[in-house]
């Protein structure tokens, strides 16, 4: 009864998990607690990357601090682990420097909505072309279970030992009001729908936001006497209600109350990059060119062909690459159509 079993050498060890090609498997098992939901959300996300058929070189993952922030260290993609709350500004910078990239911010509720709250609001307002995945476990997990802006009323945390009383953020409502293009919410139990939502969000032009509700067994469930993440998963099973296109004003979450999930917002707005180009092409005309793309195009030309270009040609290359960028956008749209 007490003997331990390891993976048999020669039999199972040679088998690799189907998602090990996108995981730094030497870092596994990961640090997340038993019955934590972040691993499931990450798995759905990796599946969505494969389904969206975006080349791996064109994806960058940016994480903030926190349990969910560790995601950047576990994916075998270009990733960056930023300071607390600053994942979205870093992702915005990446997107501006290289428009070809699909930049994904993968972070927790405290990191995105409290410390990085203003960044979230303004990235949504600008409709910056990034995807934000917010794993919401209603609490600050890594720092010891303090109350977060998403902690629902009467929940016990280490900073609210007699129960929280502040009204909580309703993230879909916040993002809808700020102007996000795509807003969805699922729990870590809805694995298939969450994967589909991630795929749609990755292929969506503009600011796409997916909130994934995940159990925190060690702090949220234990302090509130809710059992473990296993019991919370069963709670999600019994108490979540799928309502696509629901009124976002009515989807706030109470303590151990009904959870409304679904795709709430899917709309098209001009992105920041489009508006930027449009405004400056209108006012500056021929003088306007994209500096970062000019450099990238010159580097690509240097790598592909023997260097023959002059300064003038380089500038032309920059404009061409701009057109290519537009074409790529078109390709993305067609991809989206085919996936739908």
């Amino acid at each position: 009864m007490t003997q331990t079993k390891t993976t048999q050498p020669g039999s199972e060890q040679e088998l690799k998990h189907p998602q090990d090609h996108l995981l730094r498997s030497d870092r596994l098992p990961h640090i997340w607690c038993a019955t934590c939901g972040i691993g499931t959300v990450l798995k759905c996300f990796i599946e969505a990357i494969d389904r969206s058929k975006i080349p791996y070189d064109d994806i960058a993952i940016v994480s903030g601090i926190g349990c969910t922030g560790r995601v950047a260290g576990y994916v075998k993609l270009d990733s960056y682990h930023t300071t607390h709350g600053r994942a979205i500004p870093f992702a915005t910078g990446l997107k501006l420097a290289n428009r070809r990239l699909k930049v994904v911010v993968f972070s927790g509720d405290g990191d995105l909505s409290a410390i990085g709250g203003n960044h979230l609001i303004h990235a949504a307002r600008r409709n910056m072309d990034i995807t934000v995945v917010c794993v919401n476990n209603f609490i600050y997990g890594m720092t010891g279970g303090q109350a977060a802006p998403t902690t629902p009323g009467t929940a016990v945390t280490s900073t609210t030992p007699w129960g929280a009383f502040e009204p909580a953020f309703n993230l879909p409502q916040l993002l809808e009001a700020c102007g996000a293009s795509y807003v969805a919410r699922w729990t870590s139990l809805h694995v298939r729908r969450l994967t589909k939502s991630f795929t749609e969000a990755l292929l969506k032009k503009g600011f796409s936001f997916v909130e994934a509700i995940a159990p925190c067994s060690t702090l949220y469930a234990r302090r509130n006497r809710l059992g473990s993440g296993y019991d919370l998963m069963k709670f999600y099973h019994d108490h979540s209600e799928i309502r696509h296109g629901a009124d976002v004003n009515e989807v706030d979450i109470g303590f151990q109350d009904k959870i409304t999930v679904g795709k709430f917002i899917d709309r098209d707005r001009p992105t920041w990059l489009e508006l930027n180009d449009q405004q400056h092409e209108a006012t500056l005309g021929e003088k306007y060119y994209r500096h970062a793309e000019t450099i990238a195009a010159a580097a690509e030309a240097d790598a592909a062909a023997p260097p023959t270009g002059t300064a003038e040609k380089t500038q032309d290359g920059g404009k061409d690459s701009g057109k290519d960028g537009g074409k790529n956008g078109g390709k993305d749209d067609s991809k989206e159509g085919s996936h739908a």
Binding site: P18, W32, C36, G37, T40, K43
Partner: peptide, 11 residues
């Protein structure tokens, strides 16, 4: 089981 496993331990 593969999709819901948070630890990438079953497939």
């Amino acid at each position: 089981c593969e999709v819901i496993c948070p630890d990438f331990a079953i497939f």
